[in-house]
Design a protein around this nucleic acid. Sequence first.
DNA 1: TTTATTTACGAATACGTTTAAGTGAAACAT
DNA 2: ATGTTTCACTTAAACGTATTCGTAAATAAA
Lengths: 343, 343
Amino acid sequence: MKGNVTVKTLAKELNISIATVSKALNDSYEISIDTKQKVWDLAKKLKYERNPAASNLRSHKTKTIAVIIPEIANNFFSLAINGIEEIARKRDYHVLIYQTHENSETEIAFTDSLLSGRVDGILISVSSSTENYAHFKELVNKIPVVFFDRTIEDIDAVKITTDDYESAYNATCHLIENGCRKVAFLFALSNLSTGQKRLAGYQNALKDHQLDFGEELIVNYDKDEDGNYENIRELLNAQKPDGIVSSIEEFALPCYYVCRELGLNIPDDLKIISFSNLSTAPLLSPSLSTVTQPAFEIGKEAAGLLFRILDKKPFDTHEVQTLKSTLIKRESTFVSTVQVESC
Amino acid sequence: MKGNVTVKTLAKELNISIATVSKALNDSYEISIDTKQKVWDLAKKLKYERNPAASNLRSHKTKTIAVIIPEIANNFFSLAINGIEEIARKRDYHVLIYQTHENSETEIAFTDSLLSGRVDGILISVSSSTENYAHFKELVNKIPVVFFDRTIEDIDAVKITTDDYESAYNATCHLIENGCRKVAFLFALSNLSTGQKRLAGYQNALKDHQLDFGEELIVNYDKDEDGNYENIRELLNAQKPDGIVSSIEEFALPCYYVCRELGLNIPDDLKIISFSNLSTAPLLSPSLSTVTQPAFEIGKEAAGLLFRILDKKPFDTHEVQTLKSTLIKRESTFVSTVQVESC
DNA sequence: TTTATTTACGAATACGTTTAAGTGAAACAT
DNA sequence: ATGTTTCACTTAAACGTATTCGTAAATAAA
């Protein structure tokens, strides 16, 4: 801790000024190649490591980005972080992770604390409980931000999402084509455009097929897991739908349990398709048909966009990018009892 | 960016010195309660945020810890991070995540870069490909480090693991008790004490039951996914084991696929139990018996230990803590064809 | 009263880096 | 020859905070 090697150490050792050392380390054109080489060699020899705090204080660059997500223990987000990390690593950036656990106050605390200049930029996937966007509006004006997947319509910022409307529409059509006539919707993320678009896709698919799309077929997501069980059981008992579109995977798994409980056979009695990035979807019993988002790519793309903003000074870009999800048909939406290869 | 509010701003506004403001913000006993209150009020009003870089540069405290893990898209690690984050948040610490992707060079690059004082402490779960520990020895001498789950015997540091030996032993006994006479082992993490203990537990369980425990029953984990399929297929064809203990979940899922391919019925022809934190284990077909580690608690415990080291100056603790895993019996190790409730 | 102690604050410096501005010498142009 | 650039480097001043040391006033002890 004491005799740490700094630019000063290198300067003294080489009998040159600390300015020269600093510039050499930064590969400045002002320094001759000979001197640079000497500095680099000595730095390596003495295991010099630039002090990030001092560097950041002086240069206002932190080489760090923040990722604010609802929950890390969710395949979609961990894959997205994977993508983010890959890009960040290429540029020698460090990644701070913040989990909101779907709590808006926590989210506000994070965004506020990030106003201090701790990071150069922020990637956000909005908490489902966020209804007030004031903290984002402030944030977006002070620091480069990219929203990914879970976005808000009203905020003017760079966003990257998937084709939520289309994929929900297609998922619903898939059920209808396979014989469903009464399709229910498990509705989550209702505050976010992400959720709203999925709902709209579902509803319009039903409309386009002249099928019932009443409110009674929609179950709202409950923070309380038990509540979801109750609501799904209620739905299945009261409405007896023959198809279910689930807008998040956390909603689909309870369905499986409730079906077992009620003795309903999937897919004969009820077909299920869900937005999901579960790696075990093909191994479930029965294997689960999914709308799978390109989570890793979203992460990469989001980080890429952030760095593009970081590269040019004025970060006034307001673009919105959309990636395509994949509809993967598996046993849970299969037509008859004939076997389908699971994959 | 320009007119940022700093201690200077507050000092000027209140007609007191910078030193007083700084001390007031840090709730120093040197400052009267009146002055403190004035400073706090103004700070809140002007939305003052302490500059972390300056603070860190001066105080040598970063309020940041690093977590180095193999892979975030793995339930065990994302749950562990969850636990880490919970503790870090309580202390207003920030969490940097680094993924090695099981690559030792990447791991070295991370540990080297963290020598710069970017973080106050580090939590590490070692990459499976790490064979040389030089970088850890250096690290442990310069900065507080806690190893969790994936540890190395030779390194003298604070460690927290689960009862790998006992749980592997018990898992193997469970298979034997349910009728298995030829139990194979899918061996991963062979460089780490974590993996070695699991192997030892398996082997000793077989010995204690006078069963065959030859090398031919052990399959080594391959980085290449296809390689694992091949090796498992080979094992099942050549050895025809009636039980499998898998030391990691990445090894168990291919088993399911190979069994489908070979037309083997689980659990009638082959019983499987695996170390795993898969949330969907109960929903697999058949549901998977697991040794489940308390991932969240490990994370909490590891972070707690790190902060205990951080609190007292000399970080010379060398303790090792062990948490208990849970053996969860499900269909994949069930005795006969009679149904068992899946959960 | 005088002296010692406590209280509440300020002046000044250091943390390690980056960078604007300056310098002397060499190279070039006129 | 003189003036102008270029090159390679140095000086010195930040960046915003924490902290050591000092001090004046207020209080307590003698």
